[in-house]
Nucleic acid binder design. Structure first.
Lengths: 203, 203
DNA sequence: TGTACATCAGTGAACGCGCGTTCACTGATGTAC
DNA sequence: TGTACATCAGTGAACGCGCGTTCACTGATGTAC
């Protein structure tokens, strides 16, 4: 057998990685197969040795991120062996950080591709759900000693993803920072951590 | 002068209205000018009597919605002369309703086009910000007698838009409904109204 | 009131271009002997 | 260990197609007389 199975798997992974970055920046339909392959250091035709159609790539590009999200707000790696509560607090801070806001290519696809996904086929939306559920479960684990943990976890995820999505869509840097700041404080407060602006709580 | 100025303005408005519906459903780049014009009962070439380029249309399609959002959860018209608190409560319920979830064409563009907007030019993002700011101001007015009203208004808007965005992206109807339900209760609770699940509040 | 005219909203064929996909090929590689 | 071979990952020209935009035109309309 010429070329090892690993060789092919590596090339495939390189294509998906390139696609992920380009999709994050410009969405599914605006990125051509030519561009993806060139970014991966390959040419047009080889794409079809790995995927039957362009659509097949969408779901994989989203799922890939599950293995990639490991950066904190200051750029260091997140330690996933931390206790759930400390871990969730860290992730909320990282998610709504300047770093995540600016680094579109390495962005969480839940933020970069929500409306694209809503218009996509079943596999893409399934992949989106799986990534979202992983996030919710992680937050849920941090809440196990308190009242309805899942409800709070979902609200926290909505604030993280929704806050960053709005921050990215808006043309005003100040408003953008304000939204992220408030989403972060609200999510932290809701999870039982201390936020900078405790006046937020409903009175 | 052949044709009245009103005639031209009406045609233009019809084009923007068609564009808005099609954009809501399929995003900016997937919708062709041919389709927009055909939907408005016109032909290709006439487009350039009204707009210099396709991009010019994006911002207008988003801004148009400011005049269109007037439906409650049960399909009746919202009465904008209601006191701010009652009005905001009504809008939160309408925003996260089944009706708004299903009616993609008439959807709020803040939900239908966030990632498309983030990738768009300055005019689109400005229009997006203006619609968002109108929503925030409306919520803010409902909070005027209580602590930091603007912070709560932004958190409420984030829950409304973020919740609906996630609900639309996910392939599981149950999870989708759960997210909308929780986003709604959290936003209502945060604004000081009664929600169905008061256990949500941070303890 | 009736008519001739100038205007310009709307038409539809045509343009150049880049897309997703196909296909005949090439040449680097692991294996059999 | 050395070589001949079969495999198949990767190449790049070519395809049909639909896009955004242009342009010469047409014909419905408001106005001047």
């Amino acid at each position: 057998m010429p070329y090892t199975a690993e060789h092919k798997a590596e090339t495939r992974a390189r294509i998906v990685g390139s696609a992920r970055k380009l999709f994050n920046r410009r969405g599914f339909t605006d990125v051509s197969i030519d561009e993806i392959m060139a970014h991966a250091g390959l040419t047009r035709g080889g794409f079809y040795n790995h995927f039957a159609t362009k659509d097949e790539l969408y779901a994989e590009a989203i799922t890939l991120t599950l293995q990639c999200e490991k950066m904190t707000a200051d750029g260091s790696e997140i330690d996933f062996s931390l206790p759930p509560s400390r871990l969730s607090e860290l992730i909320i801070n990282a998610y709504l950080s300047d770093r995540h806001f600016q680094d579109v290519e390495e962005s969480c696809p839940l933020v970069a591709l929500p409306s694209d996904t809503a218009r996509g086929g079943e596999p893409v939306r399934q992949a989106y759900r799986q990534v979202l559920e992983a996030m919710i479960r992680l937050f849920e684990r941090s809440q196990d000693k308190r009242g309805d943990a899942r409800q709070r976890a979902i609200a926290m995820a909505t604030l993280c993803i929704g806050g960053m999505t709005l921050a990215r869509a808006v043309d005003d840097g100040e408003l953008s920072a304000e939204i992220r700041h408030i989403a972060k404080d609200t999510a932290l407060l809701m999870g039982g951590w201390n936020a900078k602006s405790p006046t937020l709580a409903a009175e």
